[in-house]
Simulated assay, not measured.
Amino acid sequence: MGESVKYYVLLILRGMAMGAADVVPGVSGGTIAFITGIYEELLDSIRKIGPNTLKALLNEGIPGAWRQCNGAFLASIFGGIAISMVSFARMITWALENHPILVWSFFFGLVAASVVYIFRQLTSVSWREIMALAIGLGLAVFVSVARPVALPDYWWVVMLSGSVAICAMILPGISGSFILLLIGIYPVFIGAIESFNLPLIASFLLGCGVGLLAFSHVLSWLLKHYHNVTLALLTGFLMGSLNVIWPWKQILETTVDRHGEVIPLVQQNILPLTYESLIGLPSQLWPAIGVMFLGLFLVLGLEAISNNMSRCE
């Protein structure tokens, strides 16, 4: 019983880490799932929600349907994600506003280490894996430099945005929050969480559910039939996402949202010393390097914990 409780507590903590990552534009909760060793089980569990689950519900009741879709696992993960998004939305927003370089540096170190971690999972490297990595890298860079647009915050727009963003959220390296930022829905999404705007939250969650059920089948099938190539593609996504989360940026163009707040529209990466001369603010180079290494060691620590858990199971 004690081991079971410990297992689900750790699942909730993994979900909370995924939720915290998904709130930040540029970081993917899928990356956290992959690092902590639950990625493929997560996809398989989501994929099981369908006709067989309905059949189990009719024949065996709620307990049968719960077992069919690995309900305890999914409830722990998504419960952790929900707790994290509600708890950390304000904190992460504050941190990005007041200490952006340190926050982005931490995630840069985390994602850079994740690139190495996922690449090490490849059992072989041929021209197929190299091509898949290049395609993933190219797509991620293209998304990262795409010009953001602004969409209205109607419920159906938020729902469609959720269905697109959730596909990115479960892909390591492609940030669902960054997709929301590109289409101009991110401030609406964060604002809805902070103010508990239930209609918008419900619309977003409905879109997420539809998109997640559809996309999980595709991704799960790819991992089962083209495991190495898919991992190489995901590694490319991660590598490309480093362009998004480079800590030192120069804002070239801004826009004003519907609340009158100025938000960056077009940015370019610059070197730390150039940052000081162009922006006129400290580059915080050494603290930034320190938190980059913190992100690196966190990934290594998560990998070690996951390996120990795998040996104990």
Rank of each mutant, 00 (worst) to 15 (best):
P187R: 02
T235S: 11
S163D: 03
W104G: 00
A132V: 05
G173F: 01
G290D: 08
A33S: 06
L102N: 10
I263M: 11
M131R: 14
A192K: 11
V210E: 08
R258L: 08
V27P: 06
Y39R: 05
A214N: 05
L205C: 11
F196D: 00
I101Y: 01
I12R: 04
L238R: 02
A95P: 02
R14C: 15
L139Y: 04
N308R: 14
I38C: 03
L213W: 13
P272Q: 14
N98H: 12
I130E: 06
L223V: 13
I118K: 02
Q121G: 08
P172G: 06
C312H: 15
G236M: 09
A75L: 15
S76I: 07
G136I: 08
P287F: 01
C69F: 13
V111A: 05
A89C: 09
A113E: 12
I251K: 13
I62A: 12
N98P: 04
P282S: 05
K55N: 14
I185T: 05
A20S: 11
T230S: 14
V218D: 05
Y7H: 15
E60D: 09
R128L: 15
W66S: 08
V266P: 13
W221V: 15
E194Y: 01
G19F: 05
P282T: 06
A20V: 02
I118P: 02
A168G: 06
I135E: 12
V143D: 01
L151T: 13
T255Q: 07
S277C: 00
S163M: 09
L102I: 14
L231I: 14
L281E: 13
P25D: 07
A65E: 02
G71Y: 10
S76F: 04
G136Q: 11
A95T: 08
L13W: 07
S161K: 04
I77H: 01
G211P: 03
V125Y: 03
L222K: 13
H217V: 05
Y186G: 00
M1E: 04
P282F: 04
S283V: 00
L151D: 03
G173E: 03
A113Q: 14
G184K: 01
S45L: 02
R14V: 10
Y7W: 14
M292P: 05
G173C: 03
G79T: 05
M16Y: 13
F88V: 07
P287W: 06
P172C: 07
I166C: 00
E97W: 00
F34S: 03
I49C: 09
G2M: 14
G15S: 12
L43N: 03
S161F: 01
I118D: 06
S216D: 00
L223P: 13
L43A: 07
V5W: 10
E253M: 10
H217Y: 11
H259C: 13
A132T: 07
E41R: 15
I270A: 05
S195F: 00
A20L: 07
I49V: 15
L171T: 01
I174M: 12
F108P: 04
P51K: 15
L206A: 11
L233D: 00
S177K: 13
K249F: 09
L198P: 08
A56N: 10
F88R: 11
A21S: 10
V86T: 06
V115W: 08
F78K: 00
L271I: 05
L151Q: 06
S216F: 01
T255R: 04
G211D: 03
S241E: 07
V143M: 07
E41F: 15
G29N: 02
P152A: 07
I77W: 03
E313N: 12
I135R: 12
G138T: 12
W248Y: 02
S175N: 08
